[in-house]
């Protein structure tokens, strides 16, 4: 049963009249739920802001969380979810903080348990439920974006392309290469070749624990793409085990130059350079 605009305004008056009591009781309840992981001053600030936002929404005649009158309340709820998500609270803990507002309001309504008040309260309660679900939703969205950001940062961190010598760039690969990462490495390496005008690239896989068919395919494609652009790739740092796997998997490295270490690869490139530039 949705809230009527009249009921909403009655609740606005109630929330205003009992502002102090509501905020302190709400703070107590939330603090008990979070077991001291947030300071009570911080919580007090949040509940005060939220109470005011609820009051404003009701005063504006909001009967649904999606309405314009509830815009400020939605912003407050999003901010709350965002803070809780970043501070490592769970989605349930965040939503329960909002549900607690129902208990607090019920306490304040106290003895006025006539049928009309009860009906009002049920409507109010469903509005608060909407608000709690809203925090749940925004909590999930924020967490997803945090995870996506971190994944991207990790990619950035783990795929440096460095200029090793005049005309030679190197990518030291560390860690497991999955399809997404291999793609990033490939694009970044090729772009660096263009930007630096380097005709040689060394892909060093000393830090790659295992090579499967897919990873090998990605490396091969990178080498072929570089060749199409007019650059040569050398693969270095192939460990004995990985060499065994490559042969066992039947992967053809064809005429791609492979060297056991980065140093060997660099020496090879420099000698190639001398030979062709004689």
């Amino acid at each position: 049963m949705p809230l009527s605009p009249d009921e909403a305004r009655r609740f606005a008056a109630l929330l205003e009249g009992q502002a102090e009591q509501l905020a302190s009781r709400w703070t107590e309840l939330v603090a008990a739920g979070l077991r001291g992981r947030l300071s009570s001053a911080e919580l007090r600030r949040q509940t005060t802001d939220l109470r005011r936002a609820f009051q404003q929404a009701f005063a504006g005649g909001a009967t649904d969380l999606g309405q314009d009158a509830a815009a400020e309340l939605r912003a407050q709820l999003t901010e709350l979810s965002s803070g809780r998500a970043r501070q490592g609270f769970s989605a349930t803990e965040t939503a329960v903080s909002i549900y607690a507002f129902k208990d607090v309001t019920l306490e304040v309504l106290g003895d006025q348990s006539d049928a009309a008040t009860l009906r009002d309260y049920v409507a109010f309660s469903s509005f608060v439920d909407q608000a709690a679900l809203f925090t749940f939703d925004s909590y999930v969205r924020i967490r997803e974006s945090i995870i996506a950001d971190q994944a991207e940062q990790l990619l950035e961190l783990s795929t440096p392309v460095v200029k090793l010598w005049e005309g030679v760039v190197a990518v030291p690969l560390v860690g497991t290469l999955d399809s997404a990462r291999a793609q990033v490495v490939m694009e970044r390496l090729l772009q660096t070749l263009v930007d630096t005008g380097s005709p040689y690239a060394i892909i060093d896989i000393t830090g790659v624990p295992a090579v499967d068919t897919q990873v090998a395919q990605h490396i091969l494609k990178t080498v072929v793409a570089a060749r199409l652009m007019g650059a040569d790739c050398i693969i270095s740092g192939i460990r004995p085990q990985i060499a065994q796997t490559i042969v066992a998997l039947g992967i053809e490295f064809g005429d791609i130059a492979t060297k056991s270490s980065l140093a060997d690869a660099l020496r090879y490139v420099i000698s190639q350079n001398k030979r062709s530039g004689r």
Partner: peptide, 14 residues
């Protein structure tokens, strides 16, 4: 000699 192939083009050709 063909010069200046863009990385995205090379990847696509592969």
């Amino acid at each position: 000699v063909v010069v200046g192939m863009r990385p995205a083009v090379a990847i696509t050709l592969v």
